[in-house]
Nucleic acid binder design. Structure first.
Lengths: 143, 143
DNA sequence: CTCATTGCAAATACTTTGCAATGGC
DNA sequence: GCCATTGCAAAGTATTTGCAATGAG
């Protein structure tokens, strides 16, 4: 019976196949990213990791994020002007709405916007390599 | 005969009206922003300013950018992961396409995308306070 | 004259890096 | 056993801030 191509948890074999050694620290970080389902920054990942393994260092968090990003296992975002925040790269591409009061992030996707972006780039003589669409918003006051 | 509401050059009176003192340094920076028509970062503004007035300091550039931003005279952008880059805030709102090879920035505006963004935020129960749409792209190879 | 603004140096926030020790595979 | 990876401390980049001197209005 065939395995699904990429079960959410199984980054380990993918990374191993890419020549990345799975250390205790990396496993801890990977678990945090998989379990959290949110968009923590390096310091927050470090805090959560420390709770599990107090010997982990912030350098290792930063280095691991770089490796995971290069291997495509995570995405890095720079919301507003704060530190980079990370998320697991399992689902399809999506954009972000950031609640400016709470810092919460809501993911969304609009095929129409994606298509319009392509169209615009094309008109300008360019090919999109990546893009970033962020809506900084505030909860509507129900009245 | 009525003056246009905001001649490109005349930020000075607007700022003065907002209680901002127009110093030699600020005038220099304002001129650089007006003349450049590009999206320089603080260091680049500092370099250009030094050419005109070597006594200016980088702190003053940063402090001035903050004041100008608060008064709405400029916009601050954080393209990619680099330093903040600034542009004069005269025209209408627009988004940016960044040439990833040259760093050049092309401005564009799509009413349809703007409308779709509003629609999405509304559906999620939010009101957009600001947004950021950046296309990182590469020139199409003509073939 | 008054108080906003400046230059300088030191501080801060986030991130990267050199190096010797450790530990996957 | 080899070499990728680690922790630590130090360095690096972008930006902000305390303070005494200066200068705009």
């Amino acid at each position: 019976m065939a395995e699904p191509a990429q079960p959410a948890q199984d980054y380990e074999s993918l990374l191993r196949a890419a020549g990345v050694r799975i250390t205790r620290q990396r496993r801890t970080i990977l678990t945090i990213l998989t379990d959290g389902g949110d968009h923590p920054d390096a310091l927050e990942i470090f805090r959560r990791a420390c709770a599990v393994d107090p010997s982990i260092s912030l350098s290792t968090v930063y280095r691991t994020m770089k490796v995971l990003e290069e291997k495509g296992a995570i995405h890095r975002h720079a919301f507003g002007d704060g530190p980079s925040r990370f998320e697991q790269a399992d689902g399809a591409h999506h954009d972000h709405l950031i609640d400016i009061d709470s810092g919460d992030v809501i993911e969304f996707r609009s095929e129409r916007i994606e298509a319009l972006q392509e169209e615009i780039a094309k008109e300008l003589g360019y090919e999109i390599v990546s893009h970033r669409l962020e809506l900084y918003a505030r909860k509507r006051r129900p009245r």
